[in-house]
């Protein structure tokens, strides 16, 4: 499958999950699914991607279904009573979901600990942290960011899914742009911006950053669109929350067909 086919197939799969579950957070998953495709392409078997924006769990479950770690049968239990696939990732079930996440601001500190441990053991693995831009409001994000710089964690690769919308408004209207690249550069991150929906470019940029063994932690600000690929969801706050009815679901399928499979 080429990247565009993956972008189509994975979107189709996660839309079906959300429709069957009658669940929200669709926009959040659509904004980061392309980043996840890139990160899973890049990471080695023992490296981990930590989805700090746990509300996009369905996107992660989709990835792990594609890699074979989550079976179709398990995937079909998403949101149901007795499931291992809660709306935010639960701990202790899957190798590639090492931590329960969903309360924002937890992933980066944990990532710093993993990166520090790898340094202590001379383990060359990287740790990838996928955060939301709203999450950069959290104080722990900045505690951890300064820790990463001070401890020279150049094996820490942070991706911010910058879709410019957060829980109850545009990020610029809430606390301002806390995911602004200058802020991260000024404290010492090796930071770049990239189109968060161009898988090829993301891979190239992250690979480039990875090769900089300059003792600086890495950051990719991935500029994204909330709801990307489903035209009527794009840049709409309500798609942080709303589930789809059958008519919306059919329109969503047509939209991704036109955008990725025409």
């Amino acid at each position: 499958m080429n990247y565009q086919q993956k972008q189509y197939e994975y979107r189709k799969k996660l839309l079906a999950m959300y429709y069957n579950a009658n669940a929200g957070h669709i926009g959040c998953s659509l904004s980061c699914i392309d980043i996840l495709i890139a990160l899973f392409e890049l990471k080695s078997g023992d490296e981990r991607v930590i989805l700090s924006k746990g509300h996009a769990a369905a996107a992660l479950y989709t990835m792990l279904n594609e890699t074979g770690e989550i079976s179709d049968e398990t995937l079909s239990t998403f949101y149901k009573n007795g499931t291992k696939l809660s709306a935010h990732p639960s701990a202790n079930f899957f190798t590639n979901i090492p931590f329960a996440l969903g309360s924002l601001g937890h992933g980066l500190p944990i990532g710093c600990g993993i990166a520090y441990a790898n340094k202590l053991t001379n383990n060359k693995e990287n740790i990838f942290i996928l955060m939301s831009d709203g999450e950069t409001n959290e104080g722990t994000t900045w505690e951890a960011a300064h820790f990463a710089v001070a401890k020279k964690l150049d094996n820490l690769i942070v991706v911010i899914d910058k879709n410019k919308l957060q829980g109850f408004g545009y990020t610029k209207d809430v606390l301002g742009d806390t995911a602004e690249i200058g802020k991260w550069k000024s404290i010492g991150f090796d930071a770049i911006e990239e189109d968060g929906h161009d898988v090829e470019k993301l891979i190239k940029s992250i690979n480039h950053l990875k090769s900089n063994k300059n003792r600086l932690p890495k950051l990719i600000i991935a500029n994204t669109i909330k709801g990307k690929g489903v035209d009527y969801m794009e840049n709409k706050l309500e798609w942080h929350y709303l589930p789809m009815d059958i008519e919306m679901y059919n329109r969503a399928l047509i939209s991704i067909e036109n955008n990725y499979n025409a």
Binding site: F99, C112, G139, A144
Partner: peptide, 14 residues
């Protein structure tokens, strides 16, 4: 808060 998260990351790596 960060130091407890860091500790959890370290503990995950044994």
């Amino acid at each position: 808060q960060n130091m407890v998260g860091v500790a959890a990351g370290l503990a995950y790596k044994d």
